[in-house]
Design a protein around this nucleic acid. Structure first.
Lengths: 213, 213
DNA sequence: GCCGGGATCTATACGCCGCTTACACCGCAA
DNA sequence: TTGCGGTGTAAGCGGCGTATAGATCCCGGC
């Protein structure tokens, strides 16, 4: 069925014994996640879109959770990379704002990853044991920036406490936008501007919080 | 099969033609949501726990989404009620802190409702058309408190912008705890104390933000 | 050149899921 | 008494995750 050529790699996601079905499945999974959300995700549909039998994905992932976990894992990596590019900014407050905006940008531009990174199946269960380490990366940047912002030595405990406030603030913004709830609260307004304003306010608030006596 | 008595209403959730199967289903649904999350929710399992046939729930809810939507609706009411009880506090900053803590308390004590209120199926789809109005209730309390806190007339626009910052902050805290992620960041510490501290910091930050020139 | 084995994919099947059609039963009202 | 609407059951459809068994392909050793 593959014709005469021995290297039939042209059709985008078709190759027997070439090892790219795994990547093809991940791509299809991300598309399906964007279209139907984590709840509407189905391993059979992913296989269907990849043009393989329902059983084929099991040769690359032990079960559907493992496929979702890989999407999440790549998501954490992407978020980390996105935040890393902002670390060159010298001014700490500006850098903090940039980190927050990067978080929001990631959530908006990679909705499949963002969903899976925070879906219940991958958070509470033992199906994603190294989640803490994988997720840790992004927050190192946040903690470092808060340290710079304080202008004084920050205790481990206070750093984490303030970090939690900052993290929760942008995470709340990201999830609220992802839920589509903000459209009713700010009708006919540019949501990106609204969110950038919220990030700016939060950053400014954190500055005064960190610099209080 | 019902024995000799004509009024077999003693078993907790069994009554034919008494109209309480609906409530019984909602209770079973909440329990199942707590045990298995939204992803593991199943209408058949709910029916099983209520001791009725798989078809029975469809006489009270058009489909599984409608049952989840009712859980969410009651959740919004419960959150509103919880926040309402804090509105008697005179000092605005103290009241703002109390509202935030009430939000966190609700999320912790009613995990089934909190999950459903923010699950993707009930947010983006047309399956819960009056969600905005139902959800609006809680935020009126927040806006009123921010108004009191400012000590000056707050424009509609600025009120909503600052409200978003406050709302996102506590919502972020609530979801991060619900995800169980905080346990790894604050090991061996009282999470309630950590969260109360975060709410306190956020409230204090909002005060200075609202009172800046 | 051949062949054996491991990696990869398919066929088939099981039980659970949401939901539909069809029917049985209860209790009230005419 | 009888009919009828509200409420339950029975049986079945296609889709789901996934387990067992088998086909197919590529590669390395003889």
């Amino acid at each position: 069925m593959s014709g005469s050529s021995t290297k039939t790699a042209d059709p985008p996601c078709r190759a027997y014994h070439h090892g790219d079905l795994r990547r093809c499945l991940l791509t299809a999974a991300r598309e399906l996640l964007v279209e139907r959300g984590v709840t509407g995700f189905s391993l059979r549909e992913v296989a269907r879109r990849a043009g393989v039998s329902p059983r084929a994905p099991y040769h690359h992932f032990p079960d559907r959770i493992a496929l979702l976990a890989e999407v999440a894992r790549e998501g954490f990596g992407g978020l980390s990379a996105l935040m890393a590019t902002e670390m060159g900014i010298a001014d700490p407050e500006q850098r903090l704002r940039a980190l927050g905006l990067a978080y929001l940008r990631f959530a908006a531009e990679s909705p499949a990853e963002f969903q899976t990174m925070h879906c219940d199946e991958l958070c509470s269960v033992e199906t994603f044991p190294d989640r803490p380490e994988v997720a840790e990366g992004s927050f190192r940047y946040l903690f470092a920036t808060l340290q710079d912002l304080a202008g004084r030595p920050l205790s481990e405990d206070e750093g984490r406490r303030v970090g939690l406030v900052a993290w929760a603030a942008v995470h709340g913004l990201a999830t609220l936008r992802a839920e589509g709830v903000l459209g009713t609260d700010f009708p006919d307004q540019d949501l990106d501007e609204i969110l950038a304003d919220a990030v700016g306010r939060t950053a400014r608030m954190l500055v005064t919080e960190l610099r209080r006596p």
